[in-house]
């Protein structure tokens, strides 16, 4: 195969996606809340289905708002049920996100059947088609998706730099944060909004369940190495970039070179992230029992 500019854009988008996911992902892992990412990525489906039925357009702004709202609804429902039932959190999470997903499937089959709103697209994603729609800025034509992802990266980085201290304190010692006068509930929901925005922006490209891999695996890998949050973030970004490049290799470059059709880049990236995690576990087990601050 020959490397074209489309390939570069696909790889570039994958890199943007994974860095975007890693930034909130580190804090999800630190807060022992990784499954929330799973829940939110499932809740995306009813959100966009409902927004579509309500507005009747495929305008991405409305779908985006619908999906973010569904993510918030999920978080709210989990908290509410947890408060009233006082049962295992994971069970409640599983119940809520499957209910939302089922609602989404029914809404899509019911109302959006004849329109191109395919649940498979939500589940598996397609980074391959992301460079197709382009906007020309000056001399070069930049894919629309890349611009969106860069804006998202700007948002995530800004939030991280602004609230780094607060996020840290809240992740390690919520009680201390409360006694210092932080408004924990508000901050929690803001964090969830950020996770939801991130998940919603990348699911078309990465696929909703692979998004969970991007959110969790690099962050988990990095947390095996270091005690410092800053180092965890940097290493997670590094592992994420490795996974994205490796994923593109095994999903597109190698298959095309041996004469097999190319495949899902998000899936390839998840596999590479998993392989890196596996290697790191074996390396760190040789050193000493990892002493990670959680």
């Amino acid at each position: 195969m020959t490397w074209t500019s489309t390939d570069s854009w696909i790889l570039f988008n994958t890199l943007l996606v994974i860095i975007n996911c890693v930034l909130p992902g580190v804090f999800l892992v630190l807060r022992k809340n990784s499954l929330l990412g799973d829940g939110i990525s499932h809740a995306v489906l009813p959100g966009i289905a409902f927004a579509f039925l309500l507005t009747g357009t495929r305008n991405s702004i409305f779908l985006f708002l619908g999906a973010v709202a569904a993510g918030l609804l999920l978080a709210f429902l989990i908290e509410f049920l947890q408060k009233h039932l006082a049962l295992e959190k994971n069970a409640i999470l599983g119940a809520v996100f499957t209910l939302l997903f089922a609602t989404g499937l029914v809404l899509i089959e019911q109302g959006a059947r004849n329109v191109d709103l395919d649940p498979s697209c939500v589940l598996f994603g397609a980074v391959e088609i992301s460079p197709l729609a382009r906007i020309s800025i000056g001399a070069i034509k930049i894919p629309e998706a890349s611009i969106r992802l860069m804006l998202l990266l700007l948002l995530n980085t800004t939030l991280l730099l602004l609230f780094y201290k607060e996020l840290n304190i809240m992740s390690f010692d919520p009680m201390l944060a409360k006694s210092l006068g932080y408004r924990i509930t508000l901050a929690n929901y803001l964090f969830i909004i950020d996770v939801a925005i991130t998940a919603v922006s990348v699911f078309e490209i990465a696929g909703s369940i692979q998004t969970v891999a991007f959110l969790t695996i690099p962050a988990a890998t990095a947390s095996l190495f270091t005690k410092h949050v800053r180092n965890t973030i940097l290493m997670a970004i590094f592992f994420g970039i490795l996974a994205a490049i490796g994923g593109y290799m095994i999903a597109v470059v190698i298959p095309l070179n041996i004469g097999v059709p190319d495949t899902n880049v998000g899936g390839g990236t998840s596999i590479m992230a998993g392989i890196i995690l596996f290697i790191v576990i074996f390396l760190t087990k040789g050193l000493k029992k990892p002493n990670v601050v959680r």
Binding site: K32, N90, T216, A220, T263, S270, I271, R294
Partner: peptide, 24 residues
């Protein structure tokens, strides 16, 4: 030393990702 929820999320997403890769 990873937590239980992280492990679940890893297994779910990794295997589903591998499935998506193969289905591709």
């Amino acid at each position: 030393s990873l937590k239980e929820d992280t492990n679940l999320a890893i297994v779910i997403s990794l295997f589903f990702g591998a499935g998506a890769f193969l289905l591709g």
